[in-house]
Design a binder for these strands. Structure first.
Length: 270
DNA sequence: CGTCGAGCCTGAAGGC
DNA sequence: TGCCTTCAGGCTCGAC
């Protein structure tokens, strides 16, 4: 689920619902590893503190509190949402922050997601590469980032190089840019770099506009106030193995690149 | 410098 | 129908 667009949708949703200004009055941790292993230390760190802001950096949700920052990473299956405080806990809700009338709940079936309490978020966030939706994003910047021997797909997935892309949007961006995912980064010519630099923000903006992507059928948890993802219907190659390429009609291929399932058109992604 | 596989977890989907 | 295997949108670590 969560790549940059899905995280952005969560952040916007929480802001629209007025979470800023609410106070963490209590909390419950049902899977200690979700908060770093020491639930007691976590609770004493965040209670009671006012939420002063919620933003995004790469795939991190950045929750600014009075005395520090809560970084939330959704990993493979996490969702963060607001519900009325009286609503019974559902299975897989690993962390609940009590904000008075409302709860901020972390739903994470696979338990890979993490809450990181820190006084210095830059220590973590500064290790991330640039934001592809930042105004400073450009083909020239992209060119400096990918001058390496590694396959372009591996480079795009590496958060230290570019922040926010995951398996879905990487495959989609490479399709738009007509680049084979196994192309070494330093072999990309200027036209390809220009196309890729445009394709990346394009697919991310599209994903955000569609409320993110949801794969499979019922996966995920979307209580009231949370947009239902629908970008899965707009995907061009991802999970479309064997179907015709929307550009040239050749069948979409599925292979493993950089250790990840990869979808691309073997005909028009040269 | 780079690739690969394992581990962290669970539920869904596919094969028989 | 039911069991078993495989796989998954992320990331880190160690081996090579």
């Amino acid at each position: 689920m969560p790549e940059l667009p899905e995280v952005e949708v969560v952040v916007r949703s929480l802001n629209q619902q007025g979470v800023v200004g609410m106070v963490i009055r209590g909390a419950e941790v049902f899977w200690p590893r979700s908060v770093g292993g020491d639930a007691t230390a976590f609770l004493s760190s965040v209670i009671p503190q006012t939420i002063e802001g919620i933003t995004r950096r790469g795939k991190f949700i950045v929750i600014s509190l009075e005395n520090g920052t809560l970084l939330v990473h959704l990993r493979m299956s996490g969702v963060l949402y607001l519900v009325d405080a009286g609503v019974p806990r559902t299975p897989h809700e690993q962390v609940i922050l009590h904000l008075g009338e409302r709860d901020l709940r972390f739903h994470d079936p696979r338990k890979f997601g993490r809450f990181i309490w820190t006084q210095d978020p830059r220590e973590t966030l500064n290790r991330l590469g640039p934001e592809p939706l930042d105004p400073s994003w450009s083909a020239a910047l992209l060119a400096t980032l990918v001058q390496r021997r590694r396959m372009i797909k591996a480079l795009l997935l590496d958060q230290h190089i570019i922040a926010g892309l995951g398996n879905i949007y990487t495959d989609e961006a490479l399709w738009h840019a007509r680049i084979h995912p196994a192309t070494p980064g330093w072999d990309l010519d200027p036209p390809r770099l220009a196309r890729l630099a445009r394709a990346i923000p394009h697919v991310l903006h599209q994903g955000i506009a569609h409320g993110g992507t949801r794969l499979g059928n019922g996966a995920g948890n979307f209580p009231g106030g949370t947009a239902v993802p629908r970008h899965q219907h707009a995907l061009r190659v991802f999970q479309r193995a064997g179907l015709p390429c929307p550009r040239c009609a050749a069948p979409i291929a599925r292979t493993i690149v950089a250790g990840r399932t990869t979808h691309f058109c073997g005909n028009c992604q040269g």
